[in-house]
Protein backbone atom coordinates (compact mmCIF):
# COMPACT_ATOMS: atom_id res chain seq x y z
CA UNK A 1 0.00 0.00 0.00
CA UNK A 2 2.99 2.26 -0.30
CA UNK A 3 2.18 3.13 -3.87
CA UNK A 4 -0.08 5.98 -4.93
CA UNK A 5 -1.64 6.13 -8.38
CA UNK A 6 -2.88 9.34 -9.95
CA UNK A 7 -2.75 11.06 -13.33
CA UNK A 8 -0.61 13.82 -14.77
CA UNK A 9 -1.96 15.21 -18.05
CA UNK A 10 -4.30 12.19 -18.20
CA UNK A 11 -1.32 9.81 -18.05
CA UNK A 12 -1.39 7.34 -15.12
CA UNK A 13 1.60 7.75 -12.81
CA UNK A 14 2.79 5.97 -9.68
CA UNK A 15 4.30 7.66 -6.66
CA UNK A 16 5.72 6.51 -3.36
CA UNK A 17 4.00 7.68 -0.21
CA UNK A 18 5.52 10.97 0.84
CA UNK A 19 6.41 12.10 -2.66
CA UNK A 20 5.25 15.42 -3.97
CA UNK A 21 3.56 15.89 -7.34
CA UNK A 22 6.76 17.48 -8.67
CA UNK A 23 8.93 14.53 -7.59
CA UNK A 24 6.52 12.15 -9.28
CA UNK A 25 6.49 14.20 -12.48
CA UNK A 26 10.28 14.30 -12.59
CA UNK A 27 10.43 10.55 -12.00
CA UNK A 28 8.14 10.10 -15.01
CA UNK A 29 10.07 12.54 -17.18
CA UNK A 30 7.34 15.17 -17.23
CA UNK A 31 8.84 18.66 -17.28
CA UNK A 32 7.63 21.25 -14.79
CA UNK A 33 9.72 24.44 -14.55
CA UNK A 34 11.14 25.40 -11.16
CA UNK A 35 13.67 27.84 -9.79
CA UNK A 36 13.47 27.69 -6.00
CA UNK A 37 13.34 23.90 -5.79
CA UNK A 38 16.32 21.64 -5.13
CA UNK A 39 16.15 18.03 -3.91
CA UNK A 40 18.86 18.73 -1.31
CA UNK A 41 16.79 21.17 0.71
CA UNK A 42 13.27 21.53 2.07
CA UNK A 43 10.92 22.89 -0.58
CA UNK A 44 9.53 26.32 0.17
CA UNK A 45 7.04 26.94 -2.61
CA UNK A 46 8.31 30.47 -3.20
CA UNK A 47 8.86 30.91 -6.96
CA UNK A 48 5.44 29.51 -7.98
CA UNK A 49 6.72 28.47 -11.42
CA UNK A 50 5.82 24.86 -10.64
CA UNK A 51 2.09 25.62 -10.34
CA UNK A 52 -0.12 22.86 -11.73
CA UNK A 53 -3.88 22.57 -12.01
CA UNK A 54 -5.84 20.03 -9.99
CA UNK A 55 -9.16 19.07 -11.52
CA UNK A 56 -12.08 17.08 -10.30
CA UNK A 57 -15.09 17.44 -12.57
CA UNK A 58 -16.02 21.14 -12.61
CA UNK A 59 -13.81 21.91 -9.68
CA UNK A 60 -10.28 23.13 -10.34
CA UNK A 61 -7.54 24.85 -8.41
CA UNK A 62 -3.88 25.66 -8.80
CA UNK A 63 -1.30 24.24 -6.40
CA UNK A 64 2.47 24.39 -6.14
CA UNK A 65 3.62 20.94 -7.25
CA UNK A 66 6.90 21.13 -5.28
CA UNK A 67 5.01 21.00 -2.00
CA UNK A 68 1.71 19.38 -2.92
CA UNK A 69 1.71 15.79 -1.68
CA UNK A 70 0.90 13.10 -4.24
CA UNK A 71 -2.51 11.68 -3.42
CA UNK A 72 -4.51 8.75 -4.69
CA UNK A 73 -6.76 9.46 -7.65
CA UNK A 74 -6.03 13.17 -8.19
CA UNK A 75 -5.92 14.59 -11.69
CA UNK A 76 -3.00 16.93 -12.33
CA UNK A 77 -2.52 19.09 -15.43
CA UNK A 78 0.76 20.88 -16.08
CA UNK A 79 -0.08 22.95 -19.12
CA UNK A 80 -3.56 24.44 -18.84
CA UNK A 81 -4.45 28.01 -19.73
CA UNK A 82 -4.51 29.03 -16.07
CA UNK A 83 -1.13 27.42 -15.41
CA UNK A 84 0.37 29.09 -18.47
CA UNK A 85 -1.04 32.45 -17.44
CA UNK A 86 0.64 32.26 -14.03
CA UNK A 87 3.93 31.10 -15.57
CA UNK A 88 3.84 33.74 -18.29
CA UNK A 89 3.45 36.58 -15.81
CA UNK A 90 6.04 35.21 -13.40
CA UNK A 91 8.54 34.88 -16.24
CA UNK A 92 7.78 38.40 -17.45
CA UNK A 93 8.29 39.77 -13.97
CA UNK A 94 11.46 37.72 -13.49
CA UNK A 95 12.92 38.99 -16.75
CA UNK A 96 12.49 42.51 -15.40
CA UNK A 97 13.55 41.70 -11.83
CA UNK A 98 16.75 39.81 -12.73
CA UNK A 99 17.54 40.88 -16.31
CA UNK A 100 21.22 39.86 -16.11
CA UNK A 101 20.48 36.21 -15.36
CA UNK A 102 21.17 34.01 -18.39
CA UNK A 103 19.56 31.05 -16.62
CA UNK A 104 16.23 32.82 -16.16
CA UNK A 105 16.21 34.05 -19.75
CA UNK A 106 16.84 30.51 -21.01
CA UNK A 107 14.12 28.94 -18.88
CA UNK A 108 11.65 31.66 -19.87
CA UNK A 109 12.47 31.21 -23.55
CA UNK A 110 11.88 27.48 -23.18
CA UNK A 111 8.35 28.40 -22.12
CA UNK A 112 7.90 30.86 -24.92
CA UNK A 113 8.50 34.04 -22.94
CA UNK A 114 11.20 36.12 -24.55
CA UNK A 115 10.17 39.65 -23.65
CA UNK A 116 8.57 41.53 -20.80
CA UNK A 117 6.16 44.44 -20.58
CA UNK A 118 7.86 45.64 -17.42
CA UNK A 119 10.80 47.98 -17.13
CA UNK A 120 13.90 46.59 -15.44
CA UNK A 121 14.92 48.42 -12.27
CA UNK A 122 18.57 47.31 -12.29
CA UNK A 123 20.02 45.93 -15.55
CA UNK A 124 22.79 44.11 -13.65
CA UNK A 125 20.52 42.30 -11.19
CA UNK A 126 20.65 38.49 -11.24
CA UNK A 127 19.08 37.53 -7.88
CA UNK A 128 15.34 37.00 -7.50
CA UNK A 129 15.43 36.09 -3.79
CA UNK A 130 14.27 32.48 -3.93
CA UNK A 131 16.24 31.71 -0.77
CA UNK A 132 17.87 28.47 -1.97
CA UNK A 133 21.31 29.77 -0.90
CA UNK A 134 20.06 30.45 2.61
CA UNK A 135 18.36 27.07 2.85
CA UNK A 136 21.38 25.10 1.64
CA UNK A 137 23.68 26.98 4.01
CA UNK A 138 21.43 26.29 6.96
CA UNK A 139 20.18 22.80 6.15
CA UNK A 140 23.06 21.14 4.34
CA UNK A 141 26.19 23.00 5.43
CA UNK A 142 24.81 23.55 8.92
CA UNK A 143 25.72 27.23 9.04
CA UNK A 144 23.80 30.44 8.59
CA UNK A 145 26.24 32.60 6.73
CA UNK A 146 23.55 33.79 4.33
CA UNK A 147 20.24 35.30 5.24
CA UNK A 148 17.22 36.66 3.49
CA UNK A 149 17.09 40.09 5.04
CA UNK A 150 14.36 42.74 5.23
CA UNK A 151 10.80 41.91 4.22
CA UNK A 152 8.24 42.30 1.53
CA UNK A 153 9.23 44.11 -1.63
CA UNK A 154 12.54 45.04 0.02
CA UNK A 155 13.59 41.44 0.65
CA UNK A 156 17.13 40.62 -0.47
CA UNK A 157 19.90 38.10 0.02
CA UNK A 158 23.07 38.85 1.95
CA UNK A 159 25.05 38.14 5.07
CA UNK A 160 23.02 38.52 8.28
CA UNK A 161 22.51 42.25 8.97
CA UNK A 162 24.31 42.81 5.64
CA UNK A 163 27.65 42.57 7.49
CA UNK A 164 30.29 40.25 5.94
CA UNK A 165 30.54 37.21 8.15
CA UNK A 166 33.32 34.92 9.36
CA UNK A 167 30.76 32.15 9.69
CA UNK A 168 31.15 31.45 5.96
CA UNK A 169 33.58 28.60 5.25
CA UNK A 170 33.63 29.29 1.54
CA UNK A 171 32.30 25.84 0.70
CA UNK A 172 30.60 27.21 -2.38
CA UNK A 173 27.35 25.28 -1.94
CA UNK A 174 25.36 28.49 -2.37
CA UNK A 175 27.11 29.31 -5.63
CA UNK A 176 26.46 25.82 -6.84
CA UNK A 177 22.79 25.71 -5.92
CA UNK A 178 21.91 29.23 -7.09
CA UNK A 179 19.46 28.84 -9.99
CA UNK A 180 20.09 32.25 -11.53
CA UNK A 181 23.86 32.66 -11.28
CA UNK A 182 23.43 35.52 -8.82
CA UNK A 183 25.49 33.94 -6.07
CA UNK A 184 28.62 34.13 -8.19
CA UNK A 185 28.39 37.88 -7.74
CA UNK A 186 26.99 37.99 -4.21
CA UNK A 187 29.51 35.53 -2.78
CA UNK A 188 32.16 38.10 -1.90
CA UNK A 189 29.72 40.35 -0.11
CA UNK A 190 28.86 37.53 2.29
CA UNK A 191 32.35 36.49 3.31
CA UNK A 192 34.30 38.02 6.17
CA UNK A 193 38.06 38.05 6.61
CA UNK A 194 38.64 34.43 7.66
CA UNK A 195 36.60 33.03 4.86
CA UNK A 196 38.39 35.23 2.34
CA UNK A 197 41.71 33.84 3.60
CA UNK A 198 40.39 30.29 3.31
CA UNK A 199 39.54 30.70 -0.36
CA UNK A 200 42.88 32.34 -0.99
CA UNK A 201 44.55 29.29 0.59
CA UNK A 202 42.46 26.98 -1.51
CA UNK A 203 43.54 28.81 -4.64
Amino acid sequence: MNEITFTINDQAVKARRGWTVLETARECGIHIPTLCHHPAVTPSGACRLCMVELRDGDWAKLVASCIYPAAEGIHVYTDTARVKNVRNWIFQMLLAAAPASREIAELAARHGVTGTRFAAKDPDEMCMVCGLCQRVCEEVVGLSAIAVVDRGVHKRVGAPFMQPTDVCVACGCCVNICPTGAMRKLFDSVRGETATKLTQLAV
Binding site: A46, C47, I90, G131, G152, V153
Partner: peptide
Protein backbone atom coordinates in the same frame (compact mmCIF):
# COMPACT_ATOMS: atom_id res chain seq x y z
CA UNK B 1 -0.41 45.34 0.51
CA UNK B 2 2.93 46.07 -1.15
CA UNK B 3 4.11 47.34 2.18
CA UNK B 4 2.59 44.38 4.02
CA UNK B 5 3.61 41.52 1.73
CA UNK B 6 6.10 39.20 3.43
CA UNK B 7 7.98 38.89 0.14
CA UNK B 8 8.31 35.14 0.20
CA UNK B 9 6.54 34.22 -3.02
CA UNK B 10 7.27 35.86 -6.36
CA UNK B 11 3.75 36.67 -7.59
CA UNK B 12 3.02 38.71 -4.47
CA UNK B 13 6.44 40.31 -4.02
CA UNK B 14 6.79 41.37 -7.65
CA UNK B 15 3.19 41.32 -8.85
CA UNK B 16 1.65 43.80 -6.41
CA UNK B 17 4.16 46.45 -7.43
CA UNK B 18 3.64 45.74 -11.13
CA UNK B 19 -0.14 45.95 -10.78
CA UNK B 20 0.17 49.21 -8.89
CA UNK B 21 2.51 50.61 -11.56
Amino acid sequence: LEEESCGKCLPCRLGLTRMRE
